[in-house]
């Protein structure tokens, strides 16, 4: 192995990149291109498509279900992300304080994030059951309702129920990531500001939040990205129903593309998510830049 061929950085670099490169090009870059192309064809399962230009996109814009799925996706992403951020930051601040059994608590807080979403969604499915829901049982025993709530049966109630399940899963991720950010803030800043007479509220707004902004930007970008492209929670809980009220773009793309067989239309729908994802990525990129700048990192 000591020949000059293998000592050349460029050759060796290429060789080392080979396994990752082949897998990523074949199963990531190529499908990304193929998916874009499919979006402009009328491909069906078992039949190669013909180029039909922007017909799929024109159809989708005129399709009320597709428009509803865009609305649902935006609603789901916005509401869930805002609440995940607020609750996650609150939980992070709580966990950053002095607590008994701190590391144990921190460990079990993350459980909703690590168990398979499809499986925890089954638990929510049962909690939201129209006849045997434990929430309805408790509320009716307390005398607050007289009829069981049909959580997944009414459009708006279903939207809110799936959003709640998504928040449940996402809060631990946001909280634990922000906690890691909180722990990098030097305690001396808090001591100095409290000597200057700052209240805890002022400390939060003027010390914690500004120093945490870069990591918030990154964490929330990931959170928005995963919520926007969510699939399994909806697929398990409602499959898009009732009356398509909970269809996200990903679940509709699946329904049209795989069981429906309209590969071209499904791919077009999936590709419509890309502009939104690019916006999120740009946001993350500038968040990262700002972070490097704050640490005096320069161009990195």
């Amino acid at each position: 192995m000591n020949s000059s061929f293998f000592d050349n950085k460029n050759t060796l670099g290429l060789l080392f990149m080979l396994p990752a490169g082949v897998l990523l090009l074949l199963f990531l870059t190529y499908p990304l291109g193929l998916g874009t192309w499919l979006g402009f064809t009328d491909a069906k399962i078992g039949r190669a498509g013909e180029w039909i230009g922007i017909e799929n996109f024109q159809f989708l814009i005129g399709d009320s279900v597709a428009r509803l799925s865009l609305f649902n996706t935006l609603f789901y992403t916005t509401v869930a992300s805002v609440l995940k951020f607020v609750l996650g930051l609150w939980l992070a601040l709580i966990l950053n304080r002095r607590l008994p059994f701190k590391s144990f608590i921190r460990a079990i807080v993350l459980l909703p994030f690590i168990v398979p979403t499809a499986l925890s969604a089954i638990a929510f499915w049962w909690i939201y059951d129209s006849q045997f829901s434990v929430v309805s049982w408790t509320l009716s025993k307390m005398g607050l309702i007289d009829r069981y709530i049909d959580f997944l049966g009414e459009p708006w109630l279903a939207r809110l129920s799936v959003t709640a399940a998504n928040i449940w899963r996402g809060v631990p991720f946001v909280a634990i990531s922000l906690l890691a950010g909180l722990q990098t803030i030097p305690p001396s800043l808090y001591e100095a500001s409290s000597i200057d007479g700052a209240t805890p509220w002022q400390q939060f707004w003027n010390v914690t939040l500004p120093l945490l902004t870069p990591i918030i930007a990154v964490v929330m970008t990931f959170s928005v990205l995963f919520t926007f492209t969510d699939f399994q929670l909806i697929y398990v809980l409602t499959r898009g129903g009732p009356l398509n009220a909970t269809h996200l773009m990903a679940t509709l793309a699946f329904q049209r593309g795989i069981p429906g067989g309209a590969l071209g239309e499904g791919a077009a729908l999936a590709m419509l998510m890309v502009p939104f994802l690019l916006a999120a990525i740009m946001f993350s990129y500038f968040g990262l830049q700002r972070r490097a700048w704050q640490q005096g990192g320069g161009d990195k």
Binding site: L26, T229, L263, L277, A280
Partner: peptide, 16 residues
């Protein structure tokens, strides 16, 4: 590549 979600790739990947 880390930011490309599976839910936009699954249809073309199914073909591949």
């Amino acid at each position: 590549a880390y930011l490309v979600p599976p839910s936009i790739l699954f249809i073309p990947l199914a073909l591949i």
